[in-house]
């Protein structure tokens, strides 16, 4: 099976500090993957590199069946190519309604002129309502997203990610600050998403990762320390030493 994303030998340093050190990582087209690691392991920097926010010093990031290099593309081009990202802190457009947030994310042509003349068809509106139902915000669809609770904002952002119909979703700490019931709902959403696209979840919470039931990549000091099933990595002495043992 060809890989959807192949990160090979990537290094990046900030003022001499090696945030990512010869990191290699790959993920298939419909795979759920959890990335864990202690603070400063380079999890967020890794996402920044894939989404084009940070340019690495060396290495390659190849995308799709035709192996396009993501390093030559801008953030918005990468997003249009099918990489969606959810940030650690929920970033939704707070002074706009849930509907407007989802409509903005809906997969459509993104150029200024086509957006200017775009008016939502009834199918688009239905699609948005269906998504709002999936993320449990059907009743809140006309409310300003700034009025939502923290957990609801997280879901809205996941909903925006789903609306983009990406081929790869990068999800940074989706369950942070959620109640147990909300976490369960989030797990379901991610698992369902992983049936149609690749999903990379960065998470601190081991219980949450265990519930995802997927392959786990452990990062440490900017490179991969271990990879495998959750039971495999949690029994790895090195992983216990740097991450779990504290």
């Amino acid at each position: 099976m060809t890989q959807l994303l192949e990160v090979d030998g990537v290094s990046v340093s900030f003022d001499g500090f090696k945030a990512i050190n010869n990191l290699s990582f790959s993920i298939g087209p419909a795979e759920l993957r959890a990335v864990i690691g202690p603070n400063g392991a380079g999890k967020t920097t890794f996402m920044d590199i894939v989404t084009g926010k940070t340019k690495p010093d060396s290495g390659s990031v190849l995308w799709g069946a035709r192996n396009r290099s993501l390093l030559k593309m801008s953030e918005s081009q990468i997003a249009r190519a099918g990489v969606g990202r959810k940030f650690q802190r929920p970033t939704v457009f707070e002074d706009q309604s849930v509907f407007a947030n989802l409509l903005m994310a809906l997969k459509k042509t993104r150029g200024p002129f086509s957006v200017l003349f775009y008016r939502p068809s009834s199918e688009d509106a239905d699609k948005v309502r269906e998504l709002a139902g999936q993320i449990g915000l059907a009743a809140q669809i006309d409310r300003l997203s700034g009025e939502l609770s923290h957990g609801q904002k997280q879901w809205l952002e996941i909903g925006m990610l789903l609306a983009q119909e990406p081929r790869l979703m990068l999800v940074d700490e989706p369950a942070a600050g959620m109640t147990p019931a909300e976490r369960e709902h989030t797990t379901d959403l991610l698992k369902r998403a992983a049936s149609s696209c690749a999903v990379v979840v960065v998470e601190h919470d081991m219980d949450f990762v265990r519930r995802l039931g997927c392959r786990v990549t452990v990062l440490h000091e900017g490179s991969v320390l271990a990879e495998g099933s959750i039971d495999h990595v949690t029994s790895d002495p090195q992983v216990i030493d740097v991450y779990l043992g504290r």
């Binding site: 918005s76 997003a79 970033t91 903005m104 200024p112 957006v115 200017l116 939502p120 983009q164």
Partner: peptide
């Protein structure tokens, strides 16, 4: 009024986020 308004207000509030949604912010 429409989606264009949504996008430019999004650019005002969080430019990077709009970029990660795939909109060419500079063009807007």
């Amino acid at each position: 009024s429409g989606k264009f308004g949504s996008v430019i207000r999004g650019i005002r509030d969080d430019e990077a986020r709009v970029r990660f949604l795939g909109y060419p912010v500079e063009g807007f």
